[in-house]
Design a protein around this nucleic acid. Structure first.
Length: 361
DNA sequence: AATACGTACAACCGCCCTCAG
DNA sequence: TCTGAGGGCGGTTGTACGTAT
């Protein structure tokens, strides 16, 4: 038996909110708050809406200081960097952009930013698709579709790249594209994390697979990226982060030292088992942080791990775990959680992503 | 002017997680 | 320890609006 619905679907209004409904909801919340119970709220104020719908309307539209549209170049960069690092964790990405909602960013990414950054690939696909649709290609296309299905069913036994989700592949492609942009001196103030050689290999293989997969997609290979050092390295302050107790099942402690003080922070890890945690992460006693302007990256002290993030006026930083640590195609690190730290002269929030995204991380 | 097509975005759906009882 | 309600979140859909034909 499925779970009970949160509201009586037959008696709730759906679709766009009217100004009257908005006013009712806003004035109530302004006056009394949400009361910690969204489900009961619409009944209290006489709205024929689902509680979840009220919550969404408030969070995405009525809440004070919400910005709509007009994304700046800087916001684009942040979204892009974070998307590459952590994927579609829109709520985490939104947390780094004051006034932006996860829904807004998600829509912006899906409808505009992605196209802006990966536009050329889409165009190629579209052109090729049109080509495939032409009458003299109908037969071969049908055969290709069957073959494609066949490949799909065999995904798990096929090449390493077949285990990559579309999202992961998209992120890798985006990453490589931006790596090449990084070579443009005009864009040196943008920070994109380095690809692990294995990630590069996966991506190139994926693209080659696509090319050879019955010509379903004819993609030009992107230029081979040059693994360049971040222009930010060796500039700015240095923070030493000492991950300890990382093998603990429940908590992870990190000690961060800036030039003027030391902060220890503990994270909850949702009970995740860290026994499979990357050895290099566990053994990393020192992670060097370089920062400059509005961005920074943390390079792994002994392994290939590093973090990246953005600084806000030098007082607040946000870190996103970026691990290049994987050796096998089906690697699965149960590593997830988030933590934060603050001190007199620095503070940050950090997200550790789980690595179950098609073996990419 | 009418229609088709594309784009942007608000809103919904349903799964997952947390936590109180 | 178990259960279920509520909240959070990512994916998807619906629709209004703009542009091309």
């Amino acid at each position: 038996m499925g779970r009970a619905p949160c509201c009586d679907k037959a008696n709730v209004k759906k679709g766009p909110w009217s100004p009257e409904e908005d006013a009712k909801l806003k004035s109530y919340i302004d006056q009394y708050g949400t009361g910690g119970n969204w489900i009961a709220l619409p009944q209290k104020i006489g709205l024929k809406r689902c509680g979840k719908s009220c919550r969404l309307r408030w969070l995405n539209y009525l809440r004070p200081n919400i910005k709509h549209g007009g994304f700046s170049e800087e916001e684009d960069n942040i979204i892009c960097s974070l998307y590459i690092s952590i994927g579609s964790r829109w709520s985490i990405i939104a947390a780094q952009l004051p006034g932006r909602t996860d829904n807004d960013i998600k829509n912006y990414w899906n409808t505009r930013l992605k196209k802006k950054l990966l536009g050329r690939r889409k165009q190629q696909q579209q052109l090729h698709h049109q080509h495939q649709q032409s009458p003299d290609h109908q037969g071969s296309q049908a055969a290709a579709t069957v073959e494609h299905d066949h490949h799909h069913h065999q995904d798990h036994q096929q090449s390493p790249t077949s285990s990559l989700s579309n999202s992961a592949l998209e992120r890798l492609q985006l990453h490589m594209k931006l790596q090449t942009l990084n070579q443009n001196p005009l864009l040196h103030n943008m920070l994109w994390p380095k690809l692990h050689p294995f990630q590069e290999k996966l991506l190139l293989q994926a693209m080659n697979d696509e090319n050879s997969n019955n010509n379903i997609m004819q993609l030009p290979l992107l230029p081979q990226p040059i693994m360049m050092e971040s222009p930010l390295s060796n500039i700015g302050k240095e923070i030493m982060i000492n991950p300890t107790n990382i093998a603990s099942h429940e908590t992870m402690a990190m000690t961060a030292t800036t030039s003027s003080n030391t902060t220890t922070t503990t994270t909850t890890t949702n009970g995740m088992d860290h026994s499979n945690c990357s050895p290099s992460m566990m053994n990393n006693n020192n992670i060097n942080v370089s920062s400059y302007g509005g961005a920074f990256q943390l390079g792994g002290g002994g392994g290939d791990d590093f973090m990246m993030g953005n600084l806000d006026n030098g007082t607040t930083s946000s870190l996103v775990w970026w691990s290049n640590e994987f050796e096998t195609n089906d690697v699965h690190y149960d590593r997830s959680g988030s933590f934060s730290s603050s001190s007199n002269d620095s503070s940050w929030d950090c997200a550790l992503r789980s690595s179950d995204d098609a073996g990419l991380f």
